[in-house]
Design a protein around this nucleic acid. Structure first.
Lengths: 286, 286
DNA sequence: ATGTGTGAACATTTTCACAGCG
DNA sequence: CGCTGTGAAAATGTTCACACAT
């Protein structure tokens, strides 16, 4: 690791913790908002609140980047915006290709957050010949055939997959073969990629399922809910493909409002690593 | 397998770790696929591979649910599907409202993964009168005015926010006031909610930023990249609203393909907790 | 005074490695 | 013998609390 930098405020020697990296965008967002309001400085307390974390965590996070604050005062907003942007690599332009221009792909293409931070949609790709030529978010959709060419011409290293689950792996393979080393996957599938390629995934239904888990807890605090273990004679609960596993209770009997025991905060999730096969029931828009 | 199950095998007393909960949907997806292929049993190794995790983690995760496997054999697919579904609360029907029917909202409404697992779109809501009446994913979009009514009528407890950032908090407040206790937020904003309400967020641009961070690392292994600290005279890096922070280097000079040092795996992220205010540059589709 | 920066305590998660059930 | 289930170790992440720079 060309960690040439022998001099360094304090930390910042090597590796910033993943957990910290994952929060930097959050801080950046809050800081950008402050910057727009021309706020010159913020305390860790204020910024933490705006970013939705606690101040101790925020200070610890910043300590990994270096000592960018002023004791007794706080942090210089503009300066921090710059430092974090640089740390995240947003001071450079990142061309991105989006594959699969269905509702989701279109939403992504139109998403302001992309363009607003160093990301530039280099191309929109779709396998459907019908889509080719159509203009989405001001960009002409291209047919999959040109995928490799676009990646090479624009030196793209980040690809977004918004195709149906079944096409995800094939598309992924082509992206990787064409030189892409970072993939954001929206298809509900585990992508298998070679070493050196990063994959992050966003799975809408997984998030909902996690919410359902907590929701169920809130409801079942007293109600006792389901039986206990299993309804006996397992193995026959449901075998119908792509259909809801079991019964349909249409929510628990409780009213709506609050719930007894808190079970509040519990918000946090994690994305996995690459893997291998994986085909799933659900199908995405396309 | 109606395993003898001595009743509450071992763990499973209370709280399943959050990290485990977040992976259950992953296992469920892999299991559902196996179920569709009529595979009767799987070993932790096979299932782990299909889910994109390692077997030790998977076994540990399952141990929190109870002893649902058979030593020397593996796990009964159907049985596990049922157990996990039940644990996640998917054996019941969860009505969901989606607010903000732009590209993203439409993509969500059409998303097969929702319907396929206990989630039912009870209503699509949009603030734009023009949208009211239009049919998306077979459901008629309703104007925001009816929000509270819909939630009450269908006893909805989960809401999805896919509105522009500026509307997110107001919408959130209404959802909460109407009795919703779980929110999936796609708007790039920190939502502030009372205790007892869960918020999970999905931020497209944050994921990309994390990828950019790793991508930058891969490239900068030897190149030395940017200068060092700051370009001095901070405070003027950029102040333009909703515009790229700094320069535009259009990626680093490297070619496309692989990169020297690995910097492989590094895939994992985390979502934050609820917070307070927060308004941001980017704007979502709507 | 005030609020950062951080060592150290605490908590959670992951990985190891192996006893023991089928 | 093979594979689960799980204590115990290691690694990561979070929170505390306070010295100390401004």
């Amino acid at each position: 690791m060309a960690t040439g930098r022998t001099h360094r405020p304090a930390n910042r020697s090597r590796g910033i913790p993943e957990a910290t990296v994952a929060r930097l965008p959050l801080y950046l967002r809050a800081l950008t908002a402050l910057s727009e309001r021309s706020v010159p400085t913020v305390s860790s307390e204020e910024l933490a609140t705006a970013a939705g974390v606690n101040s101790a965590k925020l200070r610890k996070d910043f300590s990994y980047l270096g000592s960018y604050g002023t004791r007794g005062v706080g942090y210089d907003v503009e300066y921090l915006v710059y430092q974090i942007s640089r740390e995240l690599g947003l001071t450079q332009d990142w061309p991105v290709v989006i594959v699969g221009i269905g509702n989701l792909g279109a939403a992504l293409a139109n998403y302001g957050g992309f363009a607003s931070r160093g990301f530039r949609v280099a191309s929109l790709i779709d396998a459907d010949p019908e889509m080719a030529g159509k203009v989405v978010a001001g960009i002409e959709v291209q047919h999959s055939d040109g995928l490799e060419q676009v990646i090479e011409d624009n030196d793209v290293s980040i690809g977004v997959i918004a195709t149906p689950a079944a096409s995800a792996q094939p598309v992924c393979d082509r992206l990787v073969a064409a030189g892409i080393t970072s993939i954001l996957n929206f298809a509900p599938t585990v992508l298998s990629v070679p070493d050196g390629v990063d994959v992050r995934k966003v799975d809408l239904s997984i998030e909902l399922q996690i919410l359902a888990f907590h929701e169920q807890r809130k409801a079942g605090e007293l109600s006792d809910e389901d039986a206990e273990e299993l309804p006996q004679g397992a193995g026959e609960v449901t075998a119908s493909p792509v259909a809801p596993p079991a019964a349909s209770v249409t929510k628990r009997g409780s009213g709506s409002g609050k719930s007894p025991a808190g079970a509040s905060g519990g918000t946090s999730g994690r994305n996995g690593e690459p893997g291998s096969d994986g085909d799933v029931p659900a199908v995405m828009p396309a």
